[in-house]
């Protein structure tokens, strides 16, 4: 990176660190932080819309739809979320390939599951074997985003469902008395008011989402955990690609501090958002007071 890095004398001086921390692999490490932030930025709105759909389904008056919504909400509670992550990444991949296989290769006669193998025709492979490297990586990231959204959508559905129920019933009855139909009541009365009730739960969810991002590692994305393990470790006990011993502890200490910083920033930001949202609301004036006395 710097010109003095080419000089062997820098080895052993403090300046060596500035060379070490700016070498090529470290840029991949820093890039993976952007991956994590991108995951957060994409997943949060998608999960929120999944959650909204789930909550709407759970409120539906059509029983099968309402069962579906309630089952979606309930199932994540009893089962560890990491099991869902591991499950969905394979299941989604196989699901996509299966659909493509059915569409693209109609004259294929062999069964898809043969013993321990999952075989689809070449044209149905996702991504195609001939695709460049970045397509593979993007596809992996895309699967991760969907997986995160499904799991966190269920969490969000639970929060939003609670928020919808917390809106005073008199409000809905008044809307009905004014002659609004169910759709109008829902969109014009219920939805604008529920956010204040849902916000504490949603901000908690955001914190949980931040803390779930290292699980990207388990989904096969080269994220910060992957690079911290790679860069900190020694390749073998004798020879090492990097001129240092086992530094993984320090790399993970850095990640720990990174996450603590993220949490702190979010805490402050969400506090301000809550203050702003509850400012003009007649319902939450007391809420704000209560928060100030208990916080």
């Amino acid at each position: 990176m710097f010109s003095y890095c080419a000089d062997p004398d820098t080895l052993g001086t403090f300046r060596w660190f500035s060379c070490y921390l700016t070498n090529g692999v470290h840029w991949s490490f820093y890039l993976s932080f952007i991956k994590v932030l991108a995951l957060l930025a994409v997943t949060a709105p998608v999960a929120l819309s999944f959650g909204f759909a789930g909550a709407m389904a759970a409120r539906s008056h059509f029983p099968p739809l309402s069962w579906l919504g309630k089952a979606y909400i309930a199932i994540v509670r009893g089962v560890p979320d990491i099991a869902f992550f591991l499950f969905f990444v394979i299941a989604l991949d196989q699901g996509f390939e299966w659909i493509r296989h059915k569409v693209l290769c109609r004259d294929w006669t062999d069964p898809i599951r043969q013993g321990n193998d999952f075989l689809v025709c070449q044209a149905a492979k996702l991504p195609l074997g001939t695709a460049p490297e970045w397509v593979h990586e993007t596809y992996g990231f895309f699967l991760a985003v969907i997986t995160f959204s499904i799991v966190f959508g269920a969490f969000a559905a639970n929060v939003l469902f609670g928020g919808m129920r917390a809106v005073p019933h008199a409000q809905l009855e008044t809307a009905e008395a004014y002659g609004m139909n169910r759709r109008q009541t829902f969109w014009k009365i219920l939805v604008p008011q529920m956010w204040v009730y849902a916000l504490p739960g949603l901000s908690n969810l955001w914190m949980v989402l931040i803390k779930a991002t290292p699980l990207l590692f388990l989904l096969g994305v080269e994220d910060i955990v992957y690079w911290a393990r790679e860069l900190g470790g020694t390749k073998t006990s004798k020879f090492t690609q990097y001129p240092h011993g086992d530094w993984r502890m320090w790399y993970f200490l850095f990640l720990l501090i990174f996450y603590l910083g993220m949490t702190r920033i979010s805490e402050l930001g969400l506090e301000r958002l809550m203050r702003r949202l509850s400012h003009g609301q007649a319902t939450s004036g007391g809420e704000l007071l209560r928060k100030e006395t208990t916080a």
Binding site: P214, F217, G232, D246, R248, M249, L256, Y259, L260, R264
Partner: peptide
């Protein structure tokens, strides 16, 4: 302990004990 992911805590603790 509440502000950081448990996953990272496990990693850090393991490498800490290792050293």
């Amino acid at each position: 302990f509440r502000g950081s992911p448990l996953f990272i805590q496990f990693f850090f603790a393991y490498f800490f004990f290792l050293s």
